[in-house]
Simulated assay, not measured.
Amino acid sequence: MARVVAVHGVGKQLMGEDTLLKDWYPALCDGIRRAGGPLPSAAEVAVGFYGDLFRLSGRALTVGEPRYTAADVEEGFERDLLMAWWESAARAESSVAPPGAGTLVRTPRAVQTALRALSGSRFFSRLAMRALVSDLKQVRLYLMDQHVRESARTRVAALIDDDTRVVVGHSLGSVVAYEALCASPGHRVRAFVTLGSPLGIPMIYKRLMPEPGRWPGGSGLAWTNVADEGDVVALVKDLRPVFDERIRSVVVNNGVHAHDASPYLTERLTGAAIAGGLDAV
């Protein structure tokens, strides 16, 4: 079975395990190679795929994604996460105007303003508005729809067996991977690597199951959290204060693709964390 289990983030509903593996495996090997570690074979790497849980059912005469607008951003969690992303983007980029007192009022105009501001940021510039709103909804659905949550977590946990030494989670996938590890007592994973993780955002952290802050393994587990300074999704870069001082927190520079999985994986420090797990007895 897989020695490395990789768990993707949001926006992958039109992809699949094999499609993602074609991108993840070479990037993962590049990072390990930079670190001078042992390369796993492609057969030893598995993708924990859950994106189809967010895919609309096919029906006649419809194509692509739902055409979300600002009006589709729901009050509560979705709006709060959107505003958190906006504040984070404004701190990371001087070109993004920060939200003011007037825009923090709970009105449809405030949501529209936030989406417009984010569309002008380096981080979100490649996302259409409907894709950005879709990402918000995927995070909310995972955390608040028990069927989606259990289905995603079960798929990942099913890949983690006695041969698995490393689990890598990107973006929302780090949340899924964290909960899957917590739900797999006695697992033999030796390296947990989180990339661009939102685990430290209070509105996500407090909803973790079985409870916030649990160490996701035994005493032999090494957890490395890797975040780009400009990664808006990884709003909280240092997870140690809310989880455990044992976490190794690393800040990297992914260039213009701050949140993409590939530059995270090709980073030498990421490769070293993965190689360390593969070397572990």
Rank of each mutant, 00 (worst) to 15 (best):
R3F: 10
V5G: 02
V5K: 04
V7Y: 00
Q13R: 14
L14G: 14
G16Q: 06
T19A: 13
L21S: 11
L21C: 11
D23Q: 12
D23S: 14
W24A: 09
R34I: 06
A35G: 07
G36D: 04
G37C: 08
G37T: 04
A42S: 11
V45L: 12
V45Y: 08
V47E: 03
D52R: 11
F54G: 02
T62L: 12
T62I: 11
E65M: 15
R67D: 13
R67F: 11
Y68H: 12
D72A: 07
D72N: 10
E74D: 15
E75P: 13
G76W: 07
F77S: 07
E78A: 15
D80A: 08
L81Y: 12
L82S: 04
M83R: 08
M83S: 07
M83T: 04
S88K: 09
A89L: 10
A90E: 06
R91G: 04
P98E: 03
P98A: 09
P99L: 04
G100T: 05
A101N: 13
L104E: 13
R106H: 15
R109D: 11
A110S: 13
V111R: 04
Q112M: 12
T113I: 12
L118C: 06
S121M: 05
R126H: 13
A128I: 07
A128Y: 09
M129V: 14
R130Q: 15
R130D: 15
D135H: 11
L136A: 00
Q138M: 08
Q138G: 07
V139W: 03
R140D: 05
L141F: 11
L143V: 05
L143G: 02
M144K: 15
M144E: 15
D145Y: 13
Q146W: 15
H147V: 13
H147P: 06
R149T: 02
E150K: 12
A152L: 06
R155L: 06
R155N: 02
R155G: 01
A158P: 04
I160E: 01
D163E: 14
D163Y: 12
R165E: 11
V168I: 10
S171W: 00
V176C: 01
L181C: 05
C182F: 01
C182K: 02
P185G: 04
G186M: 02
R190L: 10
R190A: 09
F192S: 00
T194A: 01
L195T: 00
P198H: 00
I201K: 06
M203G: 06
R207F: 04
L208F: 00
G213D: 03
G213S: 07
R214N: 06
P216S: 02
P216W: 00
G217D: 01
G218K: 05
G218R: 05
L221I: 05
A222W: 10
E229Q: 13
D231A: 03
D231K: 01
D231I: 01
D231C: 05
D231L: 02
V232R: 01
V236Q: 07
F243Y: 08
E245F: 09
R246P: 04
S249C: 13
V250L: 04
V250W: 01
V251Q: 07
V252F: 05
N254C: 09
N254W: 03
H257A: 14
A258M: 14
A258S: 15
S262V: 15
Y264V: 02
Y264W: 05
L265D: 00
L265G: 01
T266M: 09
A272M: 13
A273P: 05
A275V: 10
G277Y: 01
G277V: 02
L278H: 12
D279G: 15
D279R: 15
